[in-house]
């Protein structure tokens, strides 16, 4: 079985995001870029499945410009077998990304597709669900547990009400949550080795996908600031203030 893992290049989660003063976007100049944290977890899970002998090959896929090869190389250094960059200069929206993944799936015939539950830049949380719909296959979103047995996967999902377990037939699309695993660290020799692993570049057009970014995103503004608060000296003052505000 092959496993396909989606890797998105995003602004590192530790970076303090600043909206550009002209409202045209957020400042990404010289800012640290990383693999979307959820995608790192997706990749770690794929590697563990391969190491357990349940998959032969792990392929990392990213849609983006040449700069996303950096994240693909990191994925290869973590242990992925090969990488595919779908080259596009556009900031594609989830429906087009899902359509693109579907084309890659038709070529590669994976038994499992692992994506992040959301990309921390757009916070869309859509791609996995859309891909499953277009592929007409099961989706198991927000996974914090994943067990493969033959042609089925048992997935524990983090939902608002607690932990939901579902069973899906493979192939399936699973979107992963943070508590699924802790990704391994990349070691220096692996970075060297990763340079020799295959990284194919295909253009969006060659895959037969046309971008359909039908949502227009504009006017970036910082969120409204909260009024500056104040400190109290002790618990008695705190409780008195909560009482006077009618909150307790």
């Amino acid at each position: 079985m092959k496993i396909l893992v989606g890797i998105k290049r995003v602004v590192d989660y530790n970076v303090r995001i600043r909206v550009k003063s002209d409202g045209s976007g957020v400042d990404t100049d010289g800012v640290k870029m990383s693999i979307n944290p959820f995608d790192e977890i997706a990749l770690e899970e794929a590697l563990r499945i391969r190491e357990a002998g349940l998959a032969e090959e792990v392929i990392v896929v990213s849609l983006g410009g040449n700069e996303c090869q950096q994240q693909l190389r990191t994925g290869l250094a973590m242990g992925a077998d090969r990488a595919i960059q779908v080259d596009t200069s556009e900031n594609l929206q989830p429906l087009t990304i899902a359509r693109t993944f579907l084309k890659v799936i038709e070529k590669e015939q994976p038994g499992l597709v692992l994506l992040g539950k959301q990309a921390i830049d757009g916070d869309n949380s859509q791609t996995a669900q859309m891909l499953a719909a277009l592929w007409d296959r099961p989706q198991a979103t927000f996974a914090s547990g994943l067990n493969l047995s033959g042609d089925t996967a048992t997935v524990v999902r983090e939902v608002d009400a607690g932990l939901e377990t579902i069973e899906v037939d493979l192939p399936a699309v699973v979107s992963v949550d943070l508590r699924l695993n802790e990704p391994r660290f990349v070691k220096l020799p692996d970075i060297m080795k990763a340079k020799r692993k295959p990284l194919d570049v295909i253009s969006l057009g060659d895959l037969g996908v046309t971008s359909e970014n039908d949502l227009e995103i504009s006017h970036y503004t910082p969120p409204p600031a909260r009024d500056k608060g104040h400190m109290v000296e002790d618990t008695a003052q705190l409780v008195a203030e909560l009482k006077s505000r009618g909150l307790v």
Partner: peptide
């Protein structure tokens, strides 16, 4: 909620449109 986030994009894709989140 997790219910809507799981469900709505599947609906959007079946209808062939992008989804507006949140």
């Amino acid at each position: 909620t997790t219910y809507g986030r799981d469900l709505m994009p599947r609906i959007a894709a079946l209808l062939g449109v992008n989804q507006v989140s949140d």
